[in-house]
């Protein structure tokens, strides 16, 4: 049982993600996490401002239950299933990040940037607020995120999903190689 406390290798994690997708498909649903953001807008009354949010959200409430579960899963993993949350990334990435002033031994996330206090700094604001905004805007514009396009869409051999995933990488490479050095350098 010792393995459960260690980080799981990719060849365990990847198939377990497919298992999640399979369970949702056979439950009559689909594996696409970003849709819950639209559901939340609908519940908050966004239908008054745009027809896009006029939907019977009770039909989609399962995706809120799923992300509430994901939150609980994160809590359970942190409390009971993890010895150390230091991520052993490659030495090259460690040194690249060091040049940006980021220590890679802070847990899953560099808390020197991602903390409530840092909201009032320029880099913290950009990375949390602008970053989050782009996630919500971009996933709905593209009609899906990593789960909906890169896993479900590509599994279903959908050409649009391939274009979306190419977009994910264009954006990700621009942020990583141009924006991060600009904001953090």
């Amino acid at each position: 049982m010792e393995w459960i406390y260690q980080p799981w290798p990719w060849y365990v994690s990847g198939p377990l993600i497919t298992l999640t997708m399979a369970a949702l498909l056979f439950a009559g649903k689909t594996f696409g996490v970003s849709s819950n953001l639209r559901t939340m807008c609908s519940i908050a009354g966004a239908g008054k401002y745009s027809d896009f949010f006029k939907l019977d959200w009770k039909n989609d409430s399962w995706n809120l239950l799923f992300v509430i579960g994901a939150l609980l899963g994160g809590f359970i993993a942190q409390q009971y299933l993890t010895e150390s949350n230091i991520v052993l990334i490659s030495a090259t990435t460690q040194s690249d990040l060091q040049h940006l002033g980021i220590d890679s031994k802070e847990g899953y996330v560099p808390t020197s940037i991602f903390s409530i206090e840092q909201l009032f700094s320029f880099s913290g604001f950009v990375m949390m607020v602008l970053g989050g905004f782009l996630i919500g805007f971009g996933t709905r514009y593209a009609g899906g995120c990593t789960s909906g396009h890169a896993i479900t869409g590509l599994s279903n051999l959908q050409f649009p999903s391939l274009i979306a995933v190419i977009g994910f990488f264009i954006g990700g490479l621009v942020s990583t190689h141009f924006l991060l050095p600009l904001f953090l350098g």
Binding site: A70, M127, I135, G138, T139, A142, H149, G171, S175, L179
Partner: peptide, 28 residues
Amino acid sequence: YLIGGTCFGLGWALTGACPGPIFVLIGQ
């Protein structure tokens, strides 16, 4: 897909999270 996907990619690399992991990280 290209424009929307690029917007999401920009946000993904800035926050290091896609929509699922945002919730998992809050739970963490």
